[in-house]
Design a protein around this nucleic acid. Structure first.
Lengths: 218, 218
DNA sequence: CTTGCTATTCACCGCCCGGTGACAGATTGG
DNA sequence: CCAATCTGTCACCGGGCGGTGAATAGCAAG
């Protein structure tokens, strides 16, 4: 009764309903999309040539041809990141008047918190950043950093931080806190003993964040 | 003059100067040490049965026999973590009188910052925690969390947080900030645009941290 | 010495990975 | 029509992984 030949292939991906059309641009896009999807959903751990090719429903050879391998593909993701960020974080003040630097930082913090919570790809990239120091991830990290810095710069306008406070260091701390708390919660629904499951939990976190910002910038 | 047989073994690890003595306890310890060393130095990415066995200079079969596989070994690392923490973070107040909750949190923050900076194993574990949600890492995470909570509890003594502040949430933010900034700096010498190379850079970070704590707790 | 027991090693399996060379079908230009 | 080119597929390689069954080397008691 045993199956004669062991190698029964299971069609894991791309049920083949749609026939592959010969179209390089579309294939490139499919590969890039698959890469982003895979990274966002599975994380960087199982991110590889074979997995991306499977996800894109094409042969891995095409990834070498069109992107020059994984490195090039990751770089392409990085290039996308700019517009990606711009699409997901509002650029205006949301109809509020930001009178003080404290107003600004409070708003930036909360926006960044929500944006990161809602963006699995960005989360995976941040997790990657703190886990590995390869050239690949460094490029990605720089792209992300640039996009973020640009956003902050645009929002800042002409507001200047108060004297006597090392705003750069303090802000780095604040953004670090946001990133870590979001990463930790995405993986285990808690961070340093603080449960972060439902909306009420996150309200507490947001309140704490505001308190910290206001404590420093008034 | 070529060597007849191709398989010239290069003695990568354990130069064989010391002959393996038949001693189960010692071997178990060697395996555990190798695992911790490997995890601390290489990170969780290439952490596996084969690598640990190589590092310990013994056969991987022994890891299965003595620890029941990688899971058991990781669990053993977790068990160690309690004493590990106790050895590395001072338990007393360092001769200072902590009069207020702000005093306490300032001191805890700085101690934790330094301890984490000095402990690569702990850093790798934290990075692991935010990158993967397997059962393995969950155990490790819990062990770390417990050890840390115990330490804080011991240090806290009878000091109570001020009313009107959600100390748990705020503290989670503060510890999150510390963890992320240390992780990021360990990998890329910077975090959110803030350079963190030499001691002066870290003084800035510490000052910012104090400012944040004092801003909240006075 | 022989008989066990225990610690340790060895050989091997199947699997998936990254990477490459050769091939097949469509499209285009002369 | 043929030839060149482009897009896409396939088969294969070496290597490392996790995992397992069997053999071997040292010790201890009888």
């Amino acid at each position: 009764m045993a199956v004669a030949n062991a190698a029964v292939k299971i069609p894991l991906q791309a049920p083949a309903a749609e026939k592959r059309v010969r179209n390089r641009a579309a294939t490139e896009q499919a590969i890039l999309d698959a890469a982003k999807r895979l990274l966002a959903e599975e994380g960087f751990q199982n991110f590889g040539i074979n997995a991306v090719a499977r996800g894109a429903g094409c042969d891995k050879q095409l990834i070498y041809r069109y992107y020059g391998g994984l490195n090039g593909l990751v770089e392409a993701i990085g290039t996308d990141l700019g517009s990606w960020v711009a699409d997901r974080i509002p650029d205006d003040t949301g109809g509020m008047f930001l009178l003080t630097y404290g107003d600004l930082m409070e708003r930036l913090s909360l926006l960044f918190l929500d944006a990161l919570r809602a963006d699995p790809l960005m989360r995976r990239i941040v997790a990657w950043e703190v886990s590995e120091s390869s050239e690949q991830v460094r490029r990605l990290s720089e792209a992300r950093s640039r996009a973020l810095a640009g956003w902050i710069e645009r929002m800042r306008g002409s507001l200047a931080p108060p004297k006597g406070v090392d705003a750069q260091a303090v802000n780095a701390m604040i953004f670090a806190a946001i990133q870590h708390i979001v990463l930790a919660s995405a993986v285990s629904d808690q961070c340093a003993g603080l449960v972060l499951k439902n909306g009420r939990d996150w309200e507490k976190a947001a309140t704490a964040l505001k308190r910290i910002v206001r404590g420093v910038y008034g």
